[in-house]
């Protein structure tokens, strides 16, 4: 049974956690793609920026969290979301909107977003330095050990505060997003603009407002994902480097322009990563006497230093096999 607990800890829980993070990033990418029709390369840096804002606020008011009994950075999250959303709107205003007005090809805006990536990375490192930091300043990460009620399982299931929060948060966000897109005037206008931007303009939909709302949603979700990931691990300036490929892979796997697909894609990528670096030898150990081969000490599909290759090969496979993604994306 201990092997099974090991599996739950290393695959189920960490897959759900990282999958939720990727899903939130991928939803942002897919929304931006469907409204503005370009691949927003600076999105992973928007996530880092959001985490940086949360860290900054935590450093300013470190005592708030312990007073409530939640991680301070999480209490500060709403403010960090607002700051990131405003930053996203101004980035659009300063760097993407003028190019859109000029009527350039989408790929030129993609390039501008790479320029924004570099600027954000430079800025964040100028202020933060290059070392990793803990998001916990006056409080400590809550770790829960759940003992199994079975005789054979002596090891507990381990889950941390940020992991519980992100999974609960994701469920709430999915419901909220669903209601927003299907019940509200602006949400429907976003879907309309994703369907047919010219007709949206002709119908009198204020496309500037829709663009702003898109950045607000994408920016806030990015702040949530970045902050929760930094809470779970640590805040590193090169966070974006490890996020960029997975979130793009998730968006494309789900079908670009398809928010629910992006959610699913996030979990596909998250679980693919955790399953491929998981040491299967542990699960097979109880049966080692029945196997026809000698069980090596580690039997993982991918050594963990090659983890970054997993989203990439899934991305290539989906581009070869089904470029519209699992859920038939609209924009291709």
């Amino acid at each position: 049974m201990n092997e099974f607990v090991f599996f739950i800890n290393n695959v189920v829980i960490s897959g759900l956690t990282i999958g939720s993070i990727y899903a939130l990033g991928a939803v942002g990418i897919t929304l931006i793609f469907s409204i503005l029709r370009f691949a927003h390369f600076a999105h992973a840096d928007l996530m880092t920026l959001g985490a940086f804002f949360a860290f900054f606020l935590t450093a300013m008011f470190p005592a708030v969290g312990p007073a409530i009994g939640l991680p301070t950075a999480f209490v500060m999250l709403p403010l960090a979301m607002v700051m990131t959303a405003i930053a996203a709107i101004y980035i659009d205003k300063g760097f993407y909107k003028p190019l859109r007005r000029h009527g350039v090809k989408p790929i030129v805006i993609v390039m501008a977003s790479l320029g924004v990536t570099l600027m954000l990375q430079g800025l964040i490192r100028m202020f933060m330095g290059t070392s990793a930091r803990s998001m916990y300043i006056d409080d400590r990460k809550g770790i829960h050990r759940l003992d199994m009620p079975f005789e054979l399982a002596s090891r507990p299931i381990v889950i941390t505060d940020p992991q519980i929060i992100i999974i609960v948060l994701l469920v709430i966000i999915v419901i909220a997003l669903h209601l927003f897109l299907n019940r509200t005037r602006l949400g429907k206008a976003m879907r309309a603009m994703s369907d047919n931007p010219d007709l949206a303009r002709v119908s009198g939909i204020n496309t500037d407002t829709v663009v702003k709302v898109t950045w607000v949603i994408a920016g806030s979700l990015a702040a949530i994902a970045g902050t929760m990931l930094s809470l779970d691990v640590s805040l590193k300036p090169d966070l974006s480097f490890h996020l960029l490929l997975p979130i793009f892979a998730a968006a494309i796997v789900g079908g670009v322009g398809h928010p629910y697909g992006a959610l699913a894609g996030g979990f596909v990528i998250g679980f693919a990563e955790t399953l491929s670096v998981f040491n299967w030898a542990v699960l097979l150990r109880p049966w080692r006497d029945y196997l026809w081969f000698d069980l090596p000490a580690t039997l993982a599909f991918v050594p963990s230093e090659y983890k970054i290759t997993v989203p990439f090969f899934i991305l290539l496979a989906i581009l070869v096999w089904r470029p519209t993604g699992l859920f038939k994306g609209k924009v291709l």
Binding site: M111, G115, L118, Q121
Partner: peptide, 11 residues
């Protein structure tokens, strides 16, 4: 890191 920022800005 200001150099990184400048490259992005130039682009």
């Amino acid at each position: 890191q200001a150099r990184v920022f400048s490259i992005g800005l130039i682009i």
